[in-house]
Design a protein around this nucleic acid. Structure first.
Lengths: 363, 363
DNA sequence: TTGAAAGCGCTAACAC
DNA sequence: GTGTTAGCGCTTTCAA
């Protein structure tokens, strides 16, 4: 391609300038303000750049000078391996990525792996060259979230936790959504129901029954709010919320919902409805039930939450979240911040999907 | 949180230093080499930092100085919207993301949207602060690829194009894989077969029959190699490769394979096998066939390529690629470059999956 | 149109 | 254990 060998030392804007006997400003202008110099000179510069293997202004140096990185950082509390197998998270990322693409910005996936000590864990966040952060569904005490806030960059929190000072928030009304879903189920006549929830905080094991203390100590507000919605719907229907069977799936994975369903049914064999706080849980529970000859919805009503494609395809009764829109709004907030400069709190609408997995209880 | 109001001007390492009457080096050491100063001094510094709202060394300035960005860039030729709906691409990204996470590096998704002019289109690539690039399945003449190479950073090309000077390459033997698959189909007795391929280059429309010129001009080697594999298998089986029906799906989407199948069958109604160069195409084609009462494999053999989860679940006869491994290897090559510094060429193994969608021709 | 000067905030040698 | 010096490569006033 290039005839002359490349110099060992990388070409820089300065070296190009001295080579051509023009000032550094002029080279800079050739790239950033083409209208500030003659076409002729500019062509000469670009040609020389090609000859010398100068790839254009160094992005890092430019960032330092302009105080703009041209990218937003995305922090997901879970290991990326999980996130990439979570359809809801994926849709969110897709929405965010769309706006980044439109804005010509990069999207930096920040490593937030298992090394979750404050010292080490936060380092990746601290060293990310970005103009703003999106934090996806973090626990209230997440060290990465803390590290992000310390950076004092524009930040958008998704779902979780609520009310982070200085940060914008985008999410849904988890309480109302789940309450409406519960009312639908109770309206069908169910009286013995269980909630299968995602994990409420750190704890070992696979699945576990949840007691009052555990629930109160939850660092995941979304989950707690959804449970509260169910309880209040029960109370409003004249049932004792204390009678709710509550099981927590501590690990992700394709069998989590099944294991949770099994524990719930063992704990209360008279259950006729399993309300799951995630579609993934519900789909897994359905697989388990089918494997054990329990017919849905004839013998058991199952509901989900999120409205991921597979759930809709399989006719799951669920609450559809505007997952892609969440991602888009987060991106827009960062790319085009509101004039006021104030953090924004946005509650997005959801839709109750009455699918084929809910029906009146047997008998 | 902090009692004292924050200064309007952001604190920097230098301001902290003069505040504490120590040198900048000492502050730097407090963050980067804790063992180089007394615990006592270090604590005093960290405390003062917290008080002044100093978030630690600026990542961009550090990058400039150390010449390390702490991130790798991923360039995908398609708009991100497509990529996020392509299971194979997603698995690849997941694999790459895993290694980044393990290495504590960020993964920068580079905007490579529709603004594909050389001047404008490449700008996002030019301004990415990264230590290396991964380019996923680009066309031979992709402007982003060119821009990436101009940056002269360590680069790994996936699948496409082959033989990029100075860049490593990871992919599979497309020719051999497809030839083996074709031999399987021919071995079942098929004589009238079609290949449904992904697009071979830029062109308008939805689907089109492919002629010799079009094939020769293809900028997508993977596709062309797979077709060559089928042709050679035909020749080896005593069939005339010219008799191959060849249809190109020009647009992505859930109905692309169906449209391609329709055109193929219209072009040659005696077809008994459709070899698709992507699972997505094959699954879509199967949906189309079922909708038209054509039974698979009884009346029509259908095969795919990639081995995405849905394809395996539906029993598609296909070639399984090590998609996640591809991503992992790309990451490893960037995070732990081989001592020699030479670009690496790696052909990963594939596996022919004899599924339930291939069988002997009818009659 | 072009150039000179002044940093952006940090770290790596090397001296003390 | 701590400080001094010298940039990393660039953009941006401001003046010519």
């Amino acid at each position: 391609m290039s005839r002359s060998p490349h110099p060992r030392r990388r070409a820089t804007l300065a070296s190009l300038a001295s080579e051509l006997n023009v000032s550094r400003t002029t080279i800079s202008n050739a790239y950033n303000r083409p209208d500030q110099l003659s076409t002729e000179l500019r062509d000469r510069i670009l040609q020389a750049a090609k000859r010398l293997g100068y790839p254009g202004p160094d992005p890092v140096a430019r960032s330092l000078r302009t105080r703009k990185a041209g990218a937003v950082g995305l922090v997901i509390a879970e290991p990326l391996t999980y996130s990439f197998s979570d359809p809801a998270a994926l849709e969110f990322v897709a929405g965010l990525a769309q706006t980044c693409e439109e804005a010509g910005q990069g999207l930096l996936l920040v490593a937030a792996g298992p090394g979750r000590s404050l010292a080490d864990g936060a380092s990746s966040v601290l060293s990310a060259g970005v103009d703003g952060f999106v934090v996806y569904a973090a626990a209230g005490d997440d060290p990465y979230l803390k590290a992000v806030l310390d950076r004092r960059l524009p930040t958008v929190v998704i779902d979780q936790p609520r009310e982070v000072p200085g940060a914008s928030w985008i999410g849904i009304d988890d309480y109302a959504a789940m309450r409406e879903l519960a009312e639908h189920v109770l309206g069908l006549g169910h009286r013995e129901i269980a909630v299968l929830t995602m994990r409420l905080g750190d704890r070992d094991g696979e699945v576990a029954l949840v007691d009052e203390d555990r629930l109160r100590a939850s660092t995941f507000h979304t989950q707690a709010d959804r449970i509260a919605g169910v309880r209040d719907a029960m109370a409003a229907a004249g049932l004792d919320p204390a009678g709710l069977t509550l099981v927590e799936a501590l690990r992700q994975g394709p069998t989590a919902g099944g294991a949770a369903a099994e524990l719930a049914l063992r704990s209360n064999p008279r259950l006729t409805a399993l309300l799951c706080t995630a579609d993934a849980l519900a789909l897994s529970a359905m697989d388990y039930l089918r494997g054990h000859g329990i017919y849905v919805p004839g013998q058991m009503t199952v509901t989900g939450f999120d409205g991921v494609p597979e759930a809709l395809r399989r006719g799951l009764t669920t609450v559809a979240q505007p997952t892609v829109a969440k991602g888009r709004r987060a991106g827009e907030l960062l790319h085009h911040p509101p004039r006021s400069g104030e953090p924004v709190i946005e509650t997005l609408p959801v839709e109750l999907i009455r699918g084929r997995t809910s029906g009146p209880p047997a008998g």
